[in-house]
């Protein structure tokens, strides 16, 4: 990792830490879910989507008060900046997802041991991560292109996306067990192969989105 990308990752980590109130709210909501409905799969999806949303908020912070101008006088190329956003977004979505998924599984095992089934659990939470990645690859170019001025509209769109994603995840997670079986048997594919194909599609989307974002930022003036 280059010095500039490392510095930008550090900056974004500090930025997220400075917004700890939001993370605290996240933890409280998680605790409520934990103690209440036990719908862990929904909550794991919620964490993934919210974390991808946090990445987008770092772009907003960078742009605030014409901050891009100063940022690009530091030893950072525009491509470094875009690359870091995707890297940071990937990490910020994946790491909390894995941690919360593990904790949620542990909670299930402790409090509902009789109903805990690892394979079913993994299948039921497997859709939320690609959904969060999809939100990321869709929104990063939009955020760079339209910036803070149109962020209110974007926020409405994103909240809509989040709700839609969560709704779809909640609905699909109920049906997913049978759906995976149907698709797998229809295409003659195993669950592992489906996961690989999904990972491939996500990787292609990341590359495409990154290239689009690079083009957008190269054209911008600050």
């Amino acid at each position: 990792m280059s010095k500039s990308v490392k510095g930008l990752v550090l900056k974004d980590i500090k930025l997220i830490i400075s917004q700890m109130k939001l993370l605290f709210v996240l933890m409280v909501v998680w605790a409520i879910f934990l103690a209440g409905s036990m719908r862990m799969t929904f909550f794991v999806g919620y964490v993934a989507i919210l974390c991808s949303f946090l990445t987008l908020s770092t772009v907003n912070f960078d742009e605030a008060e014409n901050g891009f101008a100063y940022l690009f006088t530091l030893p950072i190329s525009r491509k470094d900046y875009v690359f870091e956003k995707y890297l940071f977004g990937f990490l910020l979505t994946t790491v909390p997802y894995v941690v919360i998924a593990a904790l949620s599984w542990a909670a299930l095992v402790i409090w509902q041991a009789a109903e805990a089934n690892l394979v079913e659990y993994i299948v039921s939470i497997s859709l939320s991560l690609p959904a969060a990645y999809f939100l990321l690859v869709l929104e990063i170019p939009l955020q760079i292109k339209f910036g803070q001025q149109k962020s209110r509209i974007l926020t409405v769109v994103m909240v809509g996306c989040m709700s839609a994603c969560l709704g779809v995840i909640a609905m699909l997670s109920e049906l997913l067990g049978s759906a995976v079986e149907t698709v797998s048997s229809f295409m003659g594919l195993g669950a592992g192969m489906l996961a690989l194909i999904t990972a491939g599609i996500i990787a292609v989307l990341f590359v495409l989105s990154y290239k689009i974002s690079c083009k957008i930022i190269e054209k911008k003036e600050f």
Binding site: K3, S4, K6, G7, L10, K11, K14, L15, S18, Q19, F61, D62, A64, E65, N66, G67, F68, A69, Y70, L74, P75, I76, F222
Partner: peptide, 19 residues
């Protein structure tokens, strides 16, 4: 234009040190 106003100087030092 200037440094991100949500930061403290202490937040910025490791970033500058890295860059």
């Amino acid at each position: 234009s200037g440094l991100c106003s949500w930061f403290t100087i202490r937040d910025f030092i490791p970033v500058l040190d890295t860059m």
